[in-house]
Design a protein around this nucleic acid. Structure first.
Lengths: 358, 358
DNA sequence: TTGAAAGCGCTACCAG
DNA sequence: CTGGTAGCGCTTTCAA
């Protein structure tokens, strides 16, 4: 991609030659505008606007209303959102930069809930794929849409300058959801370290001393895996337990290889990033004759149903995300009062659930 | 939600009283416009536009260019996408209505790939959450954004009339991805029946006669589960095999109940909607003492890695989706030549993979 | 090489 | 109760 940072030019737009506005192709009917509706109904554009928006400050006679509505219906008129928000000077668009990583079921449920809640508050939720843009570029791209709020869920690394750009472009709320605060933004801290910390503490309390931590090789997961590893390290610090990172690809063959050389590592426990990696590794260990949990304890995270179906049942770290409704309300509050002090919210709880694998 | 269909009014907008345009709050700096840049650079707005868009038809002196760019940088100017596309009369927005269902990893990978490919073709991908709107309402809501293309992946039921609305509002391409064609739209047929068909044929070929088909009770999945059941029925028709639908919630307890009463049903095989449901049911069957595959054969679909970790390894139906790149190119082709005959593409292949559970 | 101005579709004033 | 109209920010033609 040759999207370039600010003042350097965009790729030149080909001089189309075709004049702006109405469609030119002969066969194409032009898109109907409120003026067309007005003409057909025999009223002014203002009246059309009043009727269609039900403006309360103005009384329009019932026959007129009906004529306008019939005309709109007949033409298949649909108002032009861009024109409307241009005129209004603001929109109710909440921008939700789309993640580039395959997110888990937990997270996508959260996203759905969030969208629903925002809709109920009359916001238009727009997920914008900013794949392949860095922080600054992304911020500029988002700013072009003039959203009233941006909810960056950690997809691109929002810099303080990026936040500034967004605010200058009219965003009332810039909210980040990630491991650390971003200067100038309202930050909802979702500290993944706590997940790794829970897992490690659980293992250590149960007497394990040499703990492996699976780090997925799948690209795009560093955002989660790094802090989780870090959290495990912190939990181990000073307890005498040691932490050993174990890079692993999400496939049978690499898992089998890791398991084959398992005893050489002398690990007595492993936190496997999440339940899926845990299932993969646990199967490989069992196939290699390593007993779980006696020889090696295993714990995952996310509390997937599937983990409960294994034998032994998989221990896990349950993650409580803030509800979508809660977050939506926060967005709304910040939009209404943009000058409130950027608060810091913690919105993730984590607790270990002991089953049979640890 | 009180979103009402067309001509009936929206909830009246509160007469704000505040005049449109520039922000009013005293503390707030107004959002910089190209006019501000022009003023600061000491040139006209036209020149600003030329420089920032690198218009090839016009030669601007290098010193002027630099002054303009510096001014833009200093003000933190970001062009206003809505104004631009209003003026241009078209946008390059591809609207991707967001699904309301928790989609699987397969599908979200496909979505990511698609977004990426569309970006490479210089489209702006916007996912729009149309949760809670019916087909007609959704079509109108989408049309307000004046997208150049709409890619409805079956989230809301697009009616022929909805397609008409979208086309009238300027959409060059309306592409549906679902079990059946929609009049007027380019249809990419993703026939889920084929998945159920594959599974049933596989079981029948292996000598099974009484086949259960798990139908998830999870809301929002009917779109997939219905056709899959239907496909299984068709495959069974005339073979002497019978199909029995088995509603099931995705939880351990209901699965255990189903398994406890399993023998009374006299089923010798089951297609469990997907691999996750298959894993759930298979575990329940095993816990109830029903042998898999001898007493009951089990097959899922999606070919998840996790299914291969079970003992017996889970048979499955592998689904080949069209690639995102392929679909993006189709979108682009249709946008460039909107009047081409709506083609019908098949973009799903399915084949059964025999492992150990069937 | 640059500037003035029209106009995209819409809404909110103010006058009738 | 309704209509005229200004102007949101931008691009592009035409004129200087």
């Amino acid at each position: 991609m040759s999207e370039t940072p600010h003042p350097s030019p965009r790729p030149p737009r080909p001089a189309t030659g075709s004049s702006a506005g109405r469609a030119v192709r002969s066969a194409e009917r032009p898109v109907p505008t409120s003026a067309d509706v007005a003409r057909l109904a025999g009223v002014s554009r203002a009246t059309v606007s009043y009727v269609l928006n039900n403006t309360s400050a103005v009384r329009i006679s019932e026959p007129t209303r009906r004529r306008v509505r019939e005309a709109a219906e007949e033409l298949g008129y649909v108002p032009h959102a861009a024109a409307r928000s241009l005129r209004a000077g603001h929109s109710r668009m909440v921008l939700l930069p789309t993640s580039r990583v395959p997110v888990g079921p937990l997270y996508s449920r959260f996203l759905n809930e969030l969208q629903w809640a925002l809709r109920r508050l009359d916001y238009t939720v727009v997920q914008y794929g900013s794949l392949g843009l860095d922080g600054e570029e992304a911020a500029r791209a988002w700013a072009e849409l003039r959203p009233v709020a941006v909810l960056s869920l950690g997809e691109a690394d929002l810099t303080p300058h990026g936040v500034e750009v967004l605010k200058r472009s009219g965003a009332k709320a810039v909210i980040t959801l990630g491991p650390q605060r971003v200067e100038g933004a309202h930050s909802l801290v979702m500290d993944q370290r706590e997940v790794g910390g829970c897992a490690a503490r659980h293992l250590i309390e149960r007497g394990q001393r040499r703990i492996g931590v699976v780090v997925p090789e799948e690209p795009g997961l560093e955002m989660f895996s790094g802090p989780r590893l870090e959290g495990a390290r912190r939990a181990a610090a000073g307890t005498g337990a040691v932490i050993e990172p174990l890079p692993l690809a999400y496939e049978e063959e690499p898992a089998a290889r890791l398991a084959a050389a398992w005893r050489e590592r002398g690990l007595d426990a492993v936190y496997a990033y999440n339940d899926e990696y845990a299932m993969l590794l646990m199967r490989a260990l069992q196939d290699a004759g390593v007993d779980v949990p006696c020889e090696t304890a295993v714990i995952g995270s996310d509390d997937l149903l599937l983990g409960r179906l294994l034998r032994p049942r998989l221990s896990t770290v349950q993650i409580d995300l803030v509800t979508g409704r809660h977050l939506a309300e926060l967005v709304d509050r910040v939009v209404r009062d943009p000058d409130g002090t950027p608060e810091r919210h913690d919105l993730m709880g984590a607790r270990a659930i002991h089953r049979e694998s640890s």
